[in-house]
């Protein structure tokens, strides 16, 4: 038996086009990134494409990319994580302390940093689920707590020379590509695979997109929330390790300036704040564009304040655009 097909088959004018427009966002961002790169390269007289400059551009793209993804995975379930920045700092300082003060080998300290990130993320998720308090408030609290804890490890002191091996690995390049950037790309691919293929990833998107329908389809939204926060914490730990490997000196103030970039990348990248829609590529491209703004500041000797202004304005513009998009989509 066959049900009769409805006449109005194609999407009506009110049909949402979130996915279609998401691809659109990615294409626009790719074009924008390319154009900005070319303009910057030309106007700086080719300075940008010097190997040293180029390497620096991508080296310092790694952390914003990973921190953006860290925020993206909680946005996927319709949550926010205000603690990603300070957690990055905490994991970096903690690992540095383990190496410098306790003499742990670098690999073990790195592992400890990742575990620490995961555990704090897990704690965020469990607090959200068990208290039913909004994730914004929970992570605001944990952010404040972690912010203090960071200074408990070594006060305002700076760790240097904790691991020559780790730092030289972090500053190395493979085929001209910085290792930290390669690591960030690998992480991005894994996150992409998680959302594209893994059952858990799909469940996260389902919980974020329509929690009620998810629950009535047999998905545990609580599990989704905990996993998203744990993953976010783990990615913050990854970002902490990247900082550790790249900078060679870490102190407790690391992470203070990462909160805005963590939101900027996914929001500009077309990730829905309400949850249910993610874009790994968009997030990475957006992080790249924000990075180019930084580079332009350095190249043209612009007052750094302007960078924040520009990034803030772009975030606002991106949100307005996506609202317009969704409004037109009628969802």
């Amino acid at each position: 038996m066959t049900l009769p097909s409805l006449v109005e088959t194609a999407a009506g004018p009110s049909g949402p086009r979130v996915r279609a427009s998401l691809r659109g966002t990615e294409v626009v961002l790719a074009g924008l990134a390319l154009a900005a790169f070319v303009v910057l390269a030309v106007t700086t007289g080719g300075n940008l494409v010097e190997p040293a400059t180029l390497r620096a551009v991508f080296q310092f793209l790694a952390v914003p990319m990973v921190i953006g993804l860290s925020q993206m995975v909680v946005l996927a379930v319709g949550q926010m994580n205000l603690s990603v920045g300070v957690l990055t700092g905490l994991t970096a300082v903690a690992a540095a302390a383990l190496m410098a003060d306790r003499g742990w080998p670098a690999w073990l300290a790195v592992l400890a940093a990742l575990v620490l990130g995961l555990v704090v993320g897990l704690a965020n998720g469990l607090l959200v689920v068990l208290t039913r308090i909004n994730g914004f408030i929970i992570t605001l609290a944990t952010m404040t707590i972690i912010s203090g804890v960071r200074y408990g490890i070594n006060g305002t002191g700076t760790y240097q020379g904790y691991s020559d091996g780790l730092v030289s690995l972090g500053r190395a390049s493979v085929l001209g590509i910085p290792t930290v950037f390669l690591a960030a790309v690998v992480v991005a691919v894994l996150v992409w695979l998680f959302f594209a293929r893994a059952v858990r990833g799909r469940q996260l998107l389902a919980s974020g997109g329509n929690p009620l329908a998810a629950r009535l389809s047999g998905i545990s939204n609580d599990t989704s929330l905990v996993i998203a926060h744990a993953l976010s914490g783990l990615l913050a730990g990854v970002a902490g390790v990247l900082v550790l490997a790249l900078s060679g000196s870490v102190n407790a103030s690391i992470g203070d300036d990462l909160l805005l970039p963590s939101f900027a990348a996914p929001i500009i990248g077309g990730v829905a704040l309400a949850g249910g829609v993610v874009s790994v590529l968009g997030t990475c491209l957006a992080a790249f564009i924000v990075r180019l703004v930084d580079v332009a500041q350095a190249q043209y000797n612009i007052n750094p304040r302007w960078v924040d202004l520009v990034v803030g304005a772009v975030v606002l513009g991106a949100v307005l655009l996506s609202q317009k998009r969704i409004g037109r989509g009628g969802t």
């Binding site: 893994a198 059952v199 469940q203 998810a214 998905i219 249910g276």
Partner: peptide, 27 residues
């Protein structure tokens, strides 16, 4: 309560059987 508007038609139908379709947690 029934539909994930931003998800593909395929995923909307298989949401109840992801566990069964998956190998090593991957669909």
């Amino acid at each position: 309560e029934g539909i994930f508007l931003e998800q593909t038609v395929s995923r909307n139908v298989t949401v109840t059987v992801w566990d069964r379709l998956a190998r090593w947690g991957v669909v």
